[in-house]
């Protein structure tokens, strides 16, 4: 679906030094969107005809409100595209393709463990909401740079969910000092639950997702990971954003992050290949 979304809210998220922005857009995308899906957004206001930057930017859905016809995008300003997007004014109109890709799947019962690194937290929030509304138990493992980052990136909304949070920071300013994987191992060690009752979903830096996937595969916890790659068309036509997976026969195959993903089963992903 190609739509024009009106900017309802566009503001800094938390401490400005983290360059995080919250963009709420009005439009029909929310009606069919699922957690883990994304939109391809044109960074210039659609009233301006400009081809520089040329491509749309893929941004995951951080909140989906079908009753208000609103989607929320949370993003970090870290390049020319997002710098221009950051100037979009409330009341302005942006061209959006989406919802795109395949999101996370939800188990029928049991515990869902969410694992986030940095801004990888953003697409996990709507997943947590869906899981909780389905009556699942949810835990969050989240690692970030420091306390200020975690607070800026929405820690308070997670606290409001009343679920167990296992936080890690690189400097130890909040939660445990170190990596998110250490927290997961600690919890697995203390678990009375059998691992067959746990499902995991991860989003964050590739190295983190790889480490988390390895832990989960070892204890036979099914895990889904959300991959990232530079995208061209965002619909599977240009083959710009392929990743390597192992198929049922054990052969290496290419899948399109935009269309087949961005969410894949952790055990399928070949992490060490750039393609």
């Amino acid at each position: 679906m190609l739509t024009k979304g009106q900017v309802v809210v566009h503001e800094s998220l938390g401490d400005e030094k983290h360059k995080l922005k919250r963009l709420v857009l009005k439009g029909p995308i929310a009606r069919t969107a699922q957690a883990g899906q994304f939109v391809a957004i044109q960074v210039q206001d659609s009233s301006i005809s400009s081809f520089d930057p040329l491509l749309r930017r893929p941004i995951s859905l951080a909140d989906i409100s079908s009753e208000n016809d609103e989607i929320t995008l949370l993003y970090r300003v870290q390049g020319r595209g997002t710098e221009i997007l950051a100037r979009a004014k409330e009341g302005g109109v942006l061209s959006i393709m989406g919802p795109l890709g395949h999101g996370f799947s939800l188990p029928e019962a049991g515990e869902l463990w969410l694992v986030a690194g940095g801004i990888g937290i953003f697409p996990l929030y709507p997943l947590a909401l869906s899981a909780l509304s389905k009556g699942l138990t949810v835990r969050l493992f989240w690692g970030g740079e420091n306390q200020s980052f975690l607070e800026s990136a929405g820690l308070s909304s997670w606290e409001k969910l009343g679920i167990p949070l296992y936080l890690s920071t690189l400097d130890g300013s909040l939660g445990q000092k170190g990596l998110v994987t250490e927290q997961i191992n600690d919890q697995l060690g203390q678990m009375s639950l059998s691992s067959s009752q746990i499902w995991a979903a991860a989003c964050g830096p590739k190295k983190m997702m790889q480490a988390v996937a390895e832990i989960c595969i070892n204890v036979k916890v099914p895990i889904e990971v959300s991959l990232e790659e530079r995208m061209g068309c965002a619909v599977g036509a240009c083959l710009g954003c392929v990743c390597t997976l192992i198929d049922e026969t054990g052969a290496k195959v290419h899948k399109k992050v935009c269309q087949d993903g961005p969410v894949f089963r952790g055990e399928e992903v070949v992490w060490d290949e750039s393609c």
Binding site: F51, D52, P53, L54, L55, G81, E229, R230, M231, G232, C238, L239, G240, C241, V242, C243, K252, H254, E273, S274, C275
Partner: peptide
């Protein structure tokens, strides 16, 4: 053909470089 490794795309001013490699 599996084509080239990623990154296969690079954006340039009003342009796009691609090296998909005939996948």
């Amino acid at each position: 053909r599996l084509g080239n490794p990623v990154p296969r795309l690079a954006e340039t001013p009003a342009g796009l470089l691609n090296a998909v490699g005939l996948e």
